[in-house]
Design a binder for these strands. Structure first.
Lengths: 249, 249
DNA sequence: TCTTAAAATGCAGTTTTTTGCATTTTTAAT
DNA sequence: ATTAAAAATGCAAAAAACTGCATTTTAAGA
């Protein structure tokens, strides 16, 4: 077994489980614990994972800080959320996706605005339930732990039975040519259902994600009616999007 | 279990509840209290939380009266939840109701216990989603703001399609003669559906509520298979319940 | 193909870290 | 002041990490 293979396997395991034990890996790969230790040490110095006593954990595995305290690029997301809010008026029926930008949107809904909101995100639902004038409907299903959203066949089926004015969604990656893409296949299925359930789809997306792509495609860029980012509409980053039939905010 | 995982779990709990007891954490994580103490001490020195006598509190939780207000009731509810937990074993499929006692039950589920949990309470779902070995399924529907539970016809319909080993429920009022009663008609409908969806129903109920009643009836006392309260089984309060076919814990 | 240097691997002995337990001290509540 | 719970302390067993060294594997050049 090559060193590269081994290290890749280790990384895969870490990504998959968020954590690994050195002893487990040693047994699985059938090499000595010392070798695994050295591999992990190397990967740690390459910033591919974090070595801890007895094992290693994935870099993104700070459940707590990721969830609450440490919303990355909060300022930008707040700007986006505020812009997106201008689309809403009393009586709108909308869907709000999971993800930190959408959570920010939910948080910023004014108390006097009367809305009906569908969501499949637990944090969004919690946030919305604090607003007296918002009717909240949670789309049930199995809960995906990391994202705290309901997911799976049941969720998708439930989505097929609703129709909202606006869907506010986020995405992992977006590119004018490749459209919206994701790292995770299940998420793609979910977002497809969300888009289908909406008369109009609004994409909330920080500029950082513009012109990036990944493995699985959610939809073409044309499926999006409005895209909201925090940069000025004249910005060069948006050039490639202008040709499409997308309204930029 | 890795030290990092443990500390991450502790931080999660603190963020979620603003306050934790070392003894609870020790039990949940299945490690000695000393280990928890050392972890909390470490996290404190890293400014991730604030250690106090007997437990820890979240950093943003300096001045809060809700804490003290809740502590007394919490004590009894914790006892009840612990008792109720003894009914569970690996692989059980259960339903957990809303309400503070049920939330406490969800909180105290040990990390190594493998369960499938249905719920219609947002806080319970959030709590459960922090447990790696628990499969969480949220019963969707319109969210009732105060209770943060899903409610209404849709919820009841969804409940009609499941069957679990145990339902853990709370109640507004309970009396050996009048059975379980509620102030709210919609809640009654919901609880009826929950009881129907369970092979066995477990009532979690602090002694304070024993021998009280209200307007709308959920069910007779016979519909309950097990009742868990914090007082000793010999207590005089329970006399009237003994004649019924109810198992007391 | 053969040779050789460099890299990788496994092993044994040592050091460090972690953890639980017993004992003492401190703290908080009555 | 009394008392019970929690914290600190010291200690020992166990697990993990580190170190140096011998052996094997890999890679490169003649």
């Amino acid at each position: 077994m090559l060193k590269e293979e081994r290290q890749q396997t280790i990384l895969n395991e870490v990504e998959l489980h968020n954590r690994i034990l050195l002893t487990d890996i040693a047994e699985t790969l059938d090499v000595s614990i010392d070798t695994v230790r050295r591999d992990v040490k190397e990967l740690d110095s390459e910033q591919k994972l974090r070595k801890v006593h007895g094992g290693a954990i994935s870099l993104g595995f700070t459940t707590n800080s990721a969830r609450n305290a440490n919303i990355y690029a909060l300022d930008e997301k707040t700007k986006i959320a505020k812009k997106a809010l201008t689309l809403l008026k009393d009586g709108s029926v909308i869907f709000i996706d999971g993800g930190t930008t959408c959570l920010e949107l939910a948080r910023l809904i004014p108390v006097n605005l009367e809305l009906t909101c569908f969501t499949l995100s637990l944090p969004v639902a919690m946030e919305l339930s604090a607003k007296p004038n918002v009717t909240v409907i949670f789309i049930g299903g199995q809960i995906a732990k990391e994202a705290q959203i309901s997911i799976g066949a049941n969720t998708i089926h439930n989505l097929s039975e609703i129709k909202v004015d606006y869907s506010f969604i986020g995405t992992g990656y977006v590119d004018s040519q490749y459209g919206l893409t994701e790292f995770d296949w299940d998420i793609v299925q979910l977002k497809k259902a969300v888009i289908k359930a909406a008369k109009k789809t609004v994409l909330l997306c920080i500029s950082e994600k513009l012109n990036s792509q990944h493995r699985y495609k959610t939809c073409e860029i044309n499926a999006i009616n409005t895209m909201v980012t925090e940069v000025e509409p004249e910005n060069v980053l948006l050039n490639s999007f202008r040709s499409h039939d997308v309204h930029l905010l």
